[in-house]
Amino acid sequence: MTEILAHVRENPILALIIGCEIGFWFFLLAGLVARYPLRSPKVGAALLICTPLVDVVLLIATVFDLRAGGEATWPHAAAAIYLGLTLGFGHGIMRWADQRFHHRFAGGPPPLAPPKYGRPKVLHEWKQFGKFGLAWLISTVIMAALVFFVSTPAQTELLWKIAIPVMTGVGAAWFVFGPLVTTIRPPRPRAGFHKTYIG
Results as ranks from 00 to 15, higher is better:
2 T>D: 15
4 I>N: 11
5 L>A: 09
5 L>Y: 12
6 A>R: 10
12 P>F: 05
12 P>Y: 10
14 L>E: 06
14 L>K: 07
15 A>H: 03
15 A>D: 08
17 I>Q: 11
17 I>T: 01
18 I>K: 03
18 I>T: 07
18 I>P: 05
21 E>F: 06
22 I>F: 14
23 G>P: 01
25 W>S: 07
28 L>E: 08
30 A>P: 01
33 V>K: 03
35 R>W: 12
42 K>C: 02
43 V>F: 08
44 G>F: 01
45 A>M: 11
45 A>F: 13
48 L>P: 08
48 L>E: 11
52 P>S: 09
53 L>M: 09
54 V>P: 02
57 V>M: 13
60 I>M: 06
62 T>S: 12
63 V>F: 13
63 V>T: 12
64 F>I: 07
65 D>V: 02
65 D>M: 00
66 L>I: 06
67 R>C: 05
67 R>F: 01
68 A>S: 13
68 A>G: 14
68 A>K: 11
69 G>I: 01
71 E>Q: 15
71 E>H: 14
72 A>E: 11
72 A>G: 08
72 A>P: 04
75 P>M: 03
76 H>D: 04
79 A>F: 05
80 A>K: 01
84 G>N: 01
85 L>M: 13
86 T>E: 09
86 T>H: 14
88 G>W: 00
90 G>V: 11
91 H>W: 13
92 G>R: 05
95 R>C: 10
95 R>N: 14
98 D>H: 09
99 Q>M: 12
101 F>D: 03
102 H>C: 12
102 H>V: 00
103 H>W: 13
105 F>R: 03
110 P>N: 04
110 P>T: 12
111 P>S: 10
111 P>Y: 00
112 L>C: 09
112 L>T: 13
114 P>R: 06
114 P>G: 04
114 P>T: 07
114 P>L: 01
118 G>S: 06
119 R>C: 02
120 P>V: 00
120 P>T: 04
123 L>Y: 03
124 H>T: 08
124 H>V: 01
127 K>Q: 10
130 G>M: 06
133 G>W: 01
135 A>I: 04
136 W>L: 15
139 S>C: 09
140 T>F: 11
141 V>Y: 04
142 I>A: 15
142 I>T: 06
143 M>R: 10
144 A>V: 13
148 F>Y: 15
148 F>G: 06
153 P>K: 05
155 Q>C: 00
156 T>R: 05
157 E>V: 08
160 W>K: 04
163 A>E: 09
166 V>N: 02
167 M>F: 06
167 M>A: 07
169 G>I: 09
170 V>F: 09
170 V>I: 15
174 W>R: 07
174 W>A: 10
175 F>K: 06
180 L>R: 07
181 V>Q: 12
182 T>H: 02
183 T>P: 04
184 I>F: 04
185 R>S: 10
186 P>G: 02
186 P>C: 10
188 R>G: 03
188 R>V: 15
191 A>Y: 07
192 G>M: 09
192 G>P: 06
193 F>N: 06
195 K>Q: 15
196 T>Q: 14
197 Y>C: 09
198 I>V: 13
